[in-house]
């Protein structure tokens, strides 16, 4: 499998640009859970030396089956978890420094925001944390609420929001500081088809505005349509990296086929195929 260089991607002029997001040989071990049976002594290795770079202006799809280590990567990037070894930086600043998070927006997986606040209050709270001057604050809140189509519910407690609205308020808070880099953890999980399409459009619009988007997903269809590049992670290891087209092996028509092959599901499929006379015929 070919690891393509960044130069080969959409932009031709970014060879000299420092990556916006990068990890070098990132390794994360979780202390063994005391309750788990069997190999309870050994720490659980979630990431095994991940090296990755994301450049300005690209939409990067971070793919992998459940438990591959996608969230763990993001947790390291955001300083929630410290890496056992290796380096991670945002905008060239080590992730251990809070200032590295000044220009990013982050959408966590499955979050319930402060239920007793209204959307407006929640966004005002986050805006204060970004030290957005008072003069700009209200205007910015209005803009992001408009962007995620929550203006009508701006003064309702978040407690009363539907699942889709919860996800949209999450996106709104990720956009409150007009970030250059967006880190979205499974932004479409749990959404209905309309919601998923809306998120897809949003990502495309963000790209048009020149923002960098780093998002994880296992919904391969949407990844194919919006991503400039994808990285495929399995069992804590990066199995493939490059534009979607480059990842497809000859004869493969969809990312799904490539994905299954890359993560090693292929072998089983082949054994199934061998047994099946139908597949021999095809």
């Amino acid at each position: 499998m070919g690891f393509s260089t960044p130069i080969a991607i959409t932009m031709t002029n970014c060879a000299s640009i420092e990556p916006i997001l990068s990890t070098e040989n990132l390794r994360v071990e979780y202390a063994a859970l005391s309750g788990s049976a069997g190999n309870s002594r050994e720490p659980k290795v979630a990431l095994k030396g991940l090296s990755l770079s994301v450049y300005r202006g690209e939409v990067f799809g971070f793919l992998g089956p459940n438990g591959a280590g996608k969230t763990t990567t993001m947790n390291v990037l955001l300083g929630f978890t410290s890496a056992t070894s290796g380096k991670a930086s945002l905008f060239g600043t080590d992730v251990r420094q809070p200032i590295s998070r000044q220009r990013i927006g982050y959408l966590p997986e499955l979050t319930y925001y402060y239920k007793f606040l209204t959307a407006e209050e929640l966004l005002r709270f986050y805006a204060k944390i970004f030290n957005i001057p008072k003069a700009q604050r209200e205007e910015r809140i209005r803009q992001v609420l408009h962007r995620v189509d929550l203006e009508h519910a701006a003064r309702r407690p978040i407690r009363t929001y539907s699942k889709g609205m919860q996800q949209r308020i999450g996106i709104a808070q990720a956009l409150i500081n007009d970030p250059d880099l967006l880190i979205l953890d499974e932004p479409t999980s749990g959404l209905d088809p309309v919601g998923r399409m809306e998120v897809r459009h949003l990502i495309q619009r963000l790209k048009q505005e020149g923002k960098t988007v780093f998002f994880s997903s296992h919904e391969l269809g949407e990844v194919e349509t919006v991503c400039d590049r994808v990285g495929i992670l399995a069992q804590g290891e990066l199995k493939a990296l490059g534009p979607v087209q480059e990842l497809l092996a000859p004869g493969e028509r969809s990312l799904e086929q490539a994905f299954l092959r890359i993560i090693g599901y292929q072998a089983q499929e082949e054994t199934l195929c061998k047994k099946s006379p139908l597949s021999l015929a095809s």
């Binding site: 982050y106 966590p108 944390i129 970004f130 880190i183």
Partner: peptide, 9 residues
């Protein structure tokens, strides 16, 4: 909620 909060500077 600690996640979006700590993801801020």
């Amino acid at each position: 909620t600690l996640f979006p909060l700590l993801a801020k500077p």
